[in-house]
Amino acid sequence: MPSPLSGPRVPPRSGRAPRQLVVLLHGFGADGNDLIDLAEAWGGLLPDAAFVSPHAPEPCIQGFGRQWFPLTFRDPHERWRGVNRAGPGLDAFLDSELAANGLDESRLALVGFSQGCMMALHVGLRRQRPVAAVVGLSGLVVAEEGKGPEALQAGIRSVPPVLLVHGDRDEVIPVEALFLSADLLAAAGVPVEWHLSAGTGHGIDEGALHHAGLFLARRFGGA
Rank of each mutant, 00 (worst) to 15 (best):
G148T: 01
R85N: 07
L125I: 08
S96W: 15
F73R: 15
L108H: 03
G116F: 03
A86N: 12
D75K: 13
S106N: 06
G89D: 06
C117N: 14
G139I: 08
P76S: 02
P76G: 02
D91Y: 01
G102Y: 10
R85Q: 15
P130H: 05
F113Y: 14
G136T: 10
G112F: 06
G146T: 07
D75H: 12
P88A: 05
A99S: 12
N84H: 15
M119F: 04
A92P: 00
A92Y: 01
H122K: 04
V123C: 07
K147V: 00
F93L: 15
E78D: 10
S138P: 11
D95N: 04
D95A: 14
E145F: 11
R74A: 15
H122E: 13
G124Y: 09
G148M: 02
M118R: 05
V83M: 09
G112M: 05
A143K: 03
P88K: 07
G146C: 05
V131W: 13
R81E: 15
E145W: 11
S96R: 10
K147Q: 10
A92C: 06
F73M: 14
G102K: 12
V135S: 09
L98V: 04
R81P: 04
L94K: 03
A99T: 11
R107S: 10
W80V: 03
S106M: 01
L110A: 07
A132H: 03
V131R: 06
G82E: 14
G102N: 12
L110E: 09
E97N: 01
V111A: 05
K147E: 06
P130A: 08
N101C: 09
A132N: 07
S138M: 14
P88Q: 04
R126V: 09
G89I: 05
N84L: 12
D75I: 10
L94F: 02
M118S: 08
D104R: 13
Q128C: 05
